[in-house]
Write a protein that binds this DNA or RNA. Structure first.
Lengths: 251, 251
DNA sequence: TAGATTGTTAATCGATTAACAATC
DNA sequence: TAGATTGTTAATCGATTAACAATC
């Protein structure tokens, strides 16, 4: 139950076998940005770029140079003053920090439109993620083949979940079912041994401590945008009403 | 260029035509949670529930009661001490705050697997969003029909974008193209007049001030989960190494 | 009135930012 | 050496939390 503890405790401050930096504990806001830095760096590495300054990288990633340097400082001191960062070396350090150096298996539950879109997505394999299962509860969906032609995948029955996890083939579960089924699927994933879940269903999942759930909700994103749309409209309205312009609009 | 300003300035403190509460400025962290509260409340309203306490609603939404009450307090005082909140009334207040009372049009660019999944998703219409266009650059994709049988949609050419926005049919643009095309599509959306963009492509978009971009990146979500996976493994490793247990595992 | 629950306060925590000393 | 750029500091800002007075 309470095996998972913050890294600040007792043994954590000491050198951790692998050694290197003294402190640990990377802020979650930083962790969420590391994948962006990583992707941009990989692109530049492929393009043959050798070094990059915090200003350039920050610009490409849409953050401020100060924030970028602060983020990178949590990983260690991998830059060179007066020069910048080595593109490949920094990309490697980030990938190591994110745990991308060893491949992760992903099992997707729900082979509807979204599940099909996910297995067709090429961005997974190139980032070290392998889709090791696409499961569905509907008997007539089981057996169908989806995904990119070079890496097709056959829909399996839900009963495949437990062996896939037990064999260590999957560490991450993806829920691509309707909202009604999400909690049930999540419970089964957790019972099978998964501790990392990505939820695309519009449902709030309740999980025991130690299980990490991330949620992607299309409708929520649109509603947040709608809020800003409305705020803009209100502001514009106010501007029209109170401010000293009002010209140049009525043609 | 600089028409959009924070609401704290000059005229904002005064009553805003519609009147009601004095202050404004809802924290973005709160805005991001309002859609969750809203969805849960709608479900309970449908189920016939009349009132709800902050404790119950918070539990269902996966937040603490204190956070929930603080969030709701930004909208006004819509609860009753000793009783709780009226389910329907609160849902309405949230929907009004989010700007869901008037329908928003959404235009999707990119009719690949993801675009098809989006138009098939039922969660949009039920939240006041109408997909008014699904556009693609490939001539052989244009003309195909996708989406739920009751609300099919025909793929249009990219040239449909400008009239759709100009006519006021769409306020939100969704980018469901490969990464390479994303910036170009975004630029065209902004030029057409859109100020709210939801980006599913794994690319950092650069937009002028006043344009709101939200990004959903599957690979990023997986990489964040991978980080936690690794941290768990490290912790477990440390526990095995340093701590005083070590028993009960080796069978 | 007694019990329940909100709305608000004040303290804490975490994230961002600007500036600059360190150093290549 | 002079110019460039990092890594770190300290200040600021925003978000979370616990506690409780207000009040139904």
């Amino acid at each position: 139950m309470s095996t998972v503890r913050p890294l600040t405790s007792s043994t954590a401050a000491q050198s951790t076998g692998r050694g290197r930096t003294a402190e640990r504990v990377i802020p979650s806001a930083t962790v969420a940005r590391l994948p962006i830095y990583h992707r941009v760096l990989l692109g530049w590495a492929d393009a043959g770029r050798q070094t990059v300054s915090s200003e350039d990288l920050a610009g490409a990633c849409g953050v401020s140079p100060a924030k970028l340097r602060k983020d990178l400082s949590y990983l260690g001191s991998y830059g060179t003053r007066g020069v910048g960062y080595d593109v490949r070396f920094l990309a490697y350090q980030i990938s190591r920090e994110l745990g991308l150096t060893e491949p992760r298996g992903v099992v997707i539950v729900g082979a509807g439109n979204l599940g099909q879109a996910l297995v067709a997505y090429r961005g997974f394999a190139s980032r070290g993620f392998a889709i090791v299962g696409l499961l569905d509860i509907h008997p007539d969906t089981v057996g169908q083949r989806f995904g990119a032609p070079e890496t097709p995948i056959t829909v399996g029955p839900m009963s495949d979940l437990e062996p896939i996890v037990a064999d260590g083939r999957a560490q991450i579960g993806v829920i691509a079912t309707p909202a009604e089924a999400a909690q049930q699927v999540c419970d089964r994933m957790v019972a099978a041994g998964l501790r990392s879940v990505l939820n695309f269903a519009p449902a709030v999942l309740h999980v025991p401590e130690g299980v990490e759930v991330r949620k992607v909700d299309l409708a929520v994103e649109l509603q947040i945008l709608a809020f800003h749309e409305q705020r803009r409209a209100e502001e514009h309205h106010q501007t029209m009403e109170h401010a000293s312009l009002g010209k140049a609009i009525n043609a």
